Simulated scan of single mutants.
Amino acid sequence: MLNQQFTRRQVLGSLAGTSAAVAWGASLPAVHAAETDKPVAFALVSDTHYLANKESPGELFADSAAVTSQLISTLNALPGKAITAEAGGGMVAALHGVIHAGDLIDTGDKSGGAHEKMQATEFAAFEHDFGLNGSDGKLKFPCYEVHGNHDAPRGTGLVLDGIKARNQKRPGLKNLSANGLHYSWDWGPADHQVHFINLGIVVGSSQDKENPRRYNPLDSLEFLQDDLQKNVGDSGRPVVITHHVDVQRYSTPCDADPKNSAKEWHPCDARGFHAALAKYNVIAILYGHTHSRSVLKWNGTQTRTEQGLDLFNVDNGAHFRSDTQAFFYFEVTPSKLTVRELATTDRWQTANWTPQVWTRELKKA
């Protein structure tokens, strides 16, 4: 079932050599070449946590440098890679780009001592590796990132300034927020265009002064509402949204409980986010943060459900403390969404497709 959640480690350990196909309400149909011809294809990574050496803050910590470098090499080699039968078969298409769901660096949530210099080193390494447009970094594809709690939990700082500067040079944007942080773009041909929106750490309003937020949403909800109205409207076009923090566990009643101010995502913001999406064809909501993989449905509450918006929580992509990493590979055709996971147990020295695939039929615009 879609809502049955497995960690990547559980899947690799218990399903090796077996097929664990997962579909929305049906068994997985064969993935035919005609349906995947020139899809909108992209990779989703998160939680790279670039870490500088505290004793020598102008240098990356060796383990961080090694695993992030190997991740980039793995992403660059992705197009044309064969997909195992257990993961649905076929071959990886040409990538439109890579989406990064946040926690680009590790020390953006810290201050004092060497941390300011560490942050500068870490973000410079991220930019050197991921680049912006597919030709100015080690990554061969355009990169579209959001910030996470290890980047800028207070809503200010070097990483936010860096993303804003990147947005001024980012090609092909459809929309950019007044604060320069949130943005949207389209991928795909005119008759098969997917609209993408990047919204930062959480989605919410900064206008509610009576109920403090742990993480400043920086008016991301207002930008989302405006962008959907202006750039999607009643077209029925598919929409993909990325933020950093997982949303379902914070989807409790919206009230004035003082405890809500300590939560990573204020429940009133989570509810407002869900309501803002009600009339649009949102085919995927993407995030990281938990350092584990789950795929589930969301109806605006904490309740496990078979109906609702599709959430994709991607595992850590290059964390310096872990041998195991993973990322998602997405394909969107006019009729279908197909998602696979590529994972490693040795810091991207080798990688294997998780023997599982998520697929769903899409309604036509």
Rank of each mutant, 00 (worst) to 15 (best):
A41I: 04
L44N: 08
T68S: 15
I72E: 03
A62G: 01
S56N: 15
E59R: 10
G58N: 11
T68F: 06
L60F: 01
G58R: 12
D63E: 13
V67H: 10
K54H: 10
A52N: 02
L71I: 12
E59H: 02
D63W: 11
P57N: 06
A66E: 14
L71K: 06
F61T: 06
A43V: 13
A66F: 11
H49G: 05
F42K: 01
L51A: 13
E59Q: 07
D47I: 05
S69H: 13
L71V: 13
G58A: 10
F42Q: 02
K54E: 15
D63V: 06
Q70S: 11
A52Y: 06
V67L: 10
H49D: 11
T48Y: 08
F61M: 10
A41C: 15
D63L: 11
L44I: 11
D47H: 10
D63T: 07
L51R: 13
A66D: 14
A41L: 05
A52G: 09
L71M: 11
D47W: 07
S56W: 01
A43I: 05
V67N: 07
E55P: 03
K54D: 12
V45Y: 00
S46Y: 13
Y50G: 01
L51S: 10
S56D: 15
T48N: 08
E59L: 03
D47A: 07
A41V: 07
K54S: 14
E55T: 04
Q70I: 03
N53E: 15
Q70P: 03
T68H: 02
Q70M: 05
L71Q: 05
F61C: 04
E55G: 11
E59T: 02
L44T: 12
H49Y: 06
I72R: 05
H49A: 09
L60D: 02
T48C: 05
S69A: 15
G58E: 14
A65M: 04
L71H: 06
A43D: 07
L51N: 09
S64I: 00
S56G: 05
N53Y: 09
F42E: 02
V67R: 10
E59C: 00
K54R: 15
A66V: 13
T48M: 10
V67T: 15
F42R: 08
A52V: 03
V67Y: 07
Q70C: 12
V67W: 10
A65N: 03
E59P: 00
S69M: 08
F42N: 04
F61H: 13
E59S: 00
L60P: 00
E55C: 01
